[in-house]
Amino acid sequence: MADKTSSSAYWAANVRVILISLVIWFVCSFGLGIILRPALKGISVGGADLGFWFAQNGSIYVFLVLIFVYAWRMNKLDKEYGVEE
């Protein structure tokens, strides 16, 4: 294992990436899809409103991009801290 300070710095950086990703995950599904839907009724997307679209389709697209961006960020982080396989 790498020395103690660098491995705990790696973990802190990792947790930061996870937290940012979780915020996006929450906002696009629970936020835009459910909680904020009544407030965003005015924005229409093809016959329904933005909240409806996020709940049925939009959130899934965001999830997809999110996982790949996370994987890419983490692989970069692995290299920066020299902990890749």
């Binding site: 996870i18 990703s21 979780l22 995950w25 599904s29 899809g33 409806f52 709940a55 049925q56 389709n57 959130s59 899934i60 999830f63 999110l66 996982i67 996370y70 994987a71 983490m74």
Partner: peptide, 25 residues
């Protein structure tokens, strides 16, 4: 109504974000 059932769509896909971030690696 169809909107309320969106819980299935978001729930059964959003779980993979949690898997990728919190458990799988």
């Amino acid at each position: 109504g169809g909107y309320t059932q969106s819980a299935f769509l978001m729930g059964w896909t959003g779980g993979y974000v949690l898997l990728a971030l919190l458990l799988a690696p």
